[in-house]
Amino acid sequence: MTANFFIALLRFLIFPGLLFTAVVGLVMSWLDRKVTARVQWRVGPPFLQPFYDIVKLLGKEVIVPAGGSRMAFLGAPLVGLAGATLAATLIGTAAIYGGGGGFRGDIIILLYLLVLPSLAVILGGAASKNPLASVGASREMKLLMGYELPFILVMLVPIIQSGGMLSLGNLLSFQAQHGSFAASLSGVVALVAVLPCLQAKLALVPFDQAEAETEIMGGALIEYSGAPLAVFKLTKAMMLFTAPMFLVVVLWGGFGQTLGSALLGIGKYVALLVLVILLRNTNPRVKIKHAVRFFWGPVTALALIAVLLALVGV
């Protein structure tokens, strides 16, 4: 019992949880900034830049705005971090240990966990008592309601295809036997529909309304400084790892057991990420109204089509 507990703790704190995800996430946020810079004809930051940023922020003064709720203000970033870490642990464990790593229903828990970082932004923004932060928080909330619907619909596709499997491990072994869901027609449609949701989950342009620097000065995070800001930045970087990884595992075959298939899995993840980064650099920010309309209109329709296709079995 204790041994199991320690293994779980190690998985949560070191691999594939907090430490591993944080390091990979920060490297990926470097990749994001570097690719962005290259698209803009710039040189871009050095490799260790995201690490310097986090260490620096940890060493800075923490200011809690007067009139704000201290508990909620300082607690919010931790909620987001915990959510992202637990999600990364569950996904990583399932991806590495295959069928034995998950438990029944973990895909549903993951859907909840992946919402936590966004909730943390809403909570933190609302707690800081700044009008611009409230605007940011309300935008994040609208966006969340917009993209969660198609996101959950898309998650139905693998569940239907596999005949009602609700565990990541089972989904992975199913894909290992029958080929990845993304190879079927419904899987492709699902992947297309989920891409804008991924963009919004990562709060990248065109769906970065909640943190729109030039409109609302950093929005929900406007009052944050020092360590809490570092935690938010870290959570964002970890989501850069966790969210695309989730899609690779659930829809696109995961990482398999051999070195070759693992490399292929990493390739898929990087491809997804670079696609996200390029989308971010070739689009202006859309209005929150347009974004919600977009998610409830075409994206939801596409997700429904994917579900229907899955139901008829293609």
């Binding site: 803009q40 004809w41 710039r42 342009v205 650099n281 070739t282 202006p284 920010r285």
Partner: peptide
């Protein structure tokens, strides 16, 4: 204008 729209690529290109 590109920068305000969150379209930083336009910002960089125009200034280049």
């Amino acid at each position: 204008a590109g920068h305000f729209l969150g379209y930083n690529t336009v910002f960089m290109w125009a200034w280049k």
